[in-house]
């Protein structure tokens, strides 16, 4: 694991990518820091950060696009996956390297609230909670980027897909707010989703029996739920969309609330996508 980690770290700093990432990251943070904390003289660093997270759209793909795609393309994955080290350790090593580069940037911005405190009263807890939330948000996006990169051989495709995914998570809140909240629409919506999911499993597994049974069971369960306990569907679409809104959790941190459930949410997203990356690589070796 350490070997992969060190190799990734070195490649970030011997190529231009690591420097470019840190440079742009610090530039954006610095710009907002200047604007909010110095120009408008707000003492709260959280305000500056809340303007920056939109730039993850650019920063995350920059760092994650090549991480697995390049190995797939150059066939260096043959070296990694035939060496006496498990796939999980390889992926963890890579993910830790991503987190470390980002962590370096975070460490630098940790100095900003301290510097500000020399010139006035700064709410340290609030500022650092925001930085922590910011770090978790970035790490979650990077795990998604890692997963996308492992699916393809093309860096460009990985970058574009990561870019789109992050945009969707940024706007999913806005989309959710205009969605209908009544029970019937929710039922129909989830019935369609269940059908699509079983169709996809059929296409993957080519087993008509299993797929049709799951489809029937799922549809029946949804219908029973609708007639027996319609309250279940109250605003369900909006709630489900909310799960995908990675950014919504950040708002808590940003407004000074350190909520354990938010931390758990981010850690779950990270675990899920690192796990998915490992599984998708294992799966590919079997097909």
């Amino acid at each position: 694991m350490l070997a992969v980690y060190k190799k990734e770290m070195r490649s970030y700093f011997t190529s231009i990518i690591g420097w470019l990432f840190l440079g742009f990251f610090l530039l954006f943070v610095g710009l907002y820091h200047y604007l909010y904390n110095m120009y408008y003289a707000y003492s709260n660093f959280a305000y500056a950060l809340s303007g920056v997270y939109i730039f993850f759209i650019l920063l995350v793909p920059m760092l994650t696009m090549r991480i697995m795609a390049e190995e797939n393309k150059q066939k260096t994955d043959q070296l990694l996956f035939t060496s006496p080290i498990s796939i999980s350790k390889i992926i963890l090593g890579k993910f830790l390297a991503l987190i470390s580069i980002f962590g370096i940037g975070i460490l630098v911005i940790c100095v900003y609230p301290l510097a500000l405190s020399r010139y006035g009263e700064v709410n340290m807890k609030w500022s650092y909670a925001a930085i922590m939330g910011f770090f978790l948000l970035g790490a979650a996006y990077m795990s998604i980027g890692l997963f996308i990169s492992s699916m393809t051989e093309s860096q460009a495709l990985a970058a574009v897909l990561t870019f789109i995914t992050i945009i969707v998570t940024l706007f999913v809140d806005g989309i959710a707010s205009i969605l209908p909240t009544d029970d019937k629409t929710a039922w129909i919506f989830f019935a369609v989703v269940a059908l699509v999911v079983t169709l996809i499993t059929y296409l993957l597994m080519k087993n008509i029996l299993v797929s049709s049974i799951t489809a029937i069971v799922l549809e029946a369960a949804l219908a029973v739920l609708y007639f027996v306990h319609p309250a279940f569907y109250d605003g369900l679409i909006v709630r489900v969309f909310g799960w995908f809104s990675v950014v919504a959790r950040y708002d808590d941190f940003s407004s000074g609330i350190l909520n354990i459930s938010d931390v758990v949410y981010y850690l779950s997203v990270i675990t899920l996508f690192v796990f998915l990356t490992i599984q998708s690589i294992k799966k590919r070796r079997w097909s």
């Binding site: 066939k75 994955d77 043959q78 070296l79 035939t82």
Partner: peptide, 11 residues
Amino acid sequence: YLPELPPVYTD
């Protein structure tokens, strides 16, 4: 293992 394409990191 030496695969068909040597698995070298060019950088």
